[in-house]
């Protein structure tokens, strides 16, 4: 018997089901919105899940203050278009202390401005469920994480004591203070994401497309000089190069790739031919193979 639905249609249906289950069972869910392509797909799925109503939860962006400017513009536009409340949270203490990736190193900076900030925001708003756009194909410890991933009151993940997750029946029960991180895109691959963006014509941040941008090269990584806060080293001066980004985050920590891909088709084509996986553009994963698991145990998304 031929299968009646394509792979993407199945993935879409599964994700919508997950998103609705959270809305139905949790008291106060929030959708974490990182502005990247996966977040764009997740937001699109949320809108489909509740159409013609807007999704019954807010979007939340943890702003490290070091995001690309284009990301922030895009974020505000998308939230308005979806008719959703947008919560922007910054670790104000970290900001007051001027914690930045240049003086404090990527690891400490990420801890303070991303992980701590996220925990603060979740505690402050008392959210009991938070959607994240992570996929299982991204990284080894994620491959083992549940779709509904339980967190203790201190936001810790205990990988050895996860709730069994059978069929499509999700255990959403939490006590006061505890929460669940929910990953509706768990079973999507990077290729699925791009194909879906193409098929559904989902808007994404222009930074994904090639353009001439001012960059410097450090230790083999191409960094875009997005604003004047970036300290230049002696003899360093930004060069205009035709680059794009495969993944988006804080601009000082996100490596660009040289590319002329300026359409979605070209991006997908480039991705298929690429032999380097996408997270290698993110500088926080390099230290140790187990580093993501460690970060996640501490509450990183």
């Amino acid at each position: 018997m031929p299968q009646r639905r394509s792979h993407l249609e199945r993935l879409e249906a599964e994700s919508i089901r997950i998103i609705r289950e959270v809305a139905a069972e949790m008291k106060k869910p929030v959708m974490l919105y990182s502005i990247g392509k996966d977040s764009s797909v997740m937001l699109h799925l949320a809108r489909k899940a509740f159409y013609p109503a807007p999704p019954p939860f807010p979007l939340m962006h943890v702003d490290t203050t070091w995001k690309f400017r284009e990301m922030i513009e895009f974020r505000d536009r998308m939230a308005a278009e979806a008719g959703m409340e947008l919560i922007v949270h910054t670790n104000l203490q970290g900001k007051a202390d001027n914690i930045n990736p240049f003086d404090h190193g990527s690891s400490y900076y990420t801890q303070v401005m991303k992980t701590d900030a996220l925990k603060q925001a979740l505690d402050m708003h008392k959210f009991d469920a938070a959607f994240g756009g992570a996929r299982r194909d991204e990284e080894k410890s994620r491959a083992k994480e549940r779709i509904f991933s339980f967190r203790t009151a201190t936001h810790a993940w205990d990988p050895k004591n996860q709730r069994p997750e059978l069929w499509s029946i999700y255990n959403t029960r939490v006590k006061a203070g505890e929460s669940i991180r929910v990953f509706p895109l768990s079973n999507w691959t990077e290729l699925d994401i791009w194909q879906y963006i193409l098929a559904e014509n989902i808007p994404i941040v222009p930074l994904y497309f090639a353009d001439h941008r001012p960059v410097v090269e450090r230790d083999g990584t191409i960094i875009m000089v997005d604003d004047e806060r970036m300290p230049l080293k002696d003899g360093e001066s930004p060069q205009m190069r035709l680059v794009r980004f495969r993944t988006l985050g804080c601009y000082p920590l996100t490596g660009a790739v040289e590319s002329g891909a300026s359409t979605l088709e070209e991006i997908v084509e480039e991705m298929l031919i690429a032999r380097t996986s996408e997270r290698s553009g993110r500088m926080i994963d390099h230290d140790d193979s187990a580093s993501m698991e460690k970060k996640k145990r501490e509450g990183y998304f």
């Binding site: 299982r136 080894k140 410890s141 083992k144 990988p159 079973n187």
Partner: peptide, 22 residues
């Protein structure tokens, strides 16, 4: 080692949890 994603698994050389692969 490619699929045994958790630290404890790599150290003990066994699989503890379900891993989903594509």
């Amino acid at each position: 080692l490619l699929v045994d994603g958790l630290e404890a698994e790599r150290e003990q050389g066994i699989t503890i949890d379900v891993a989903y692969r594509f």
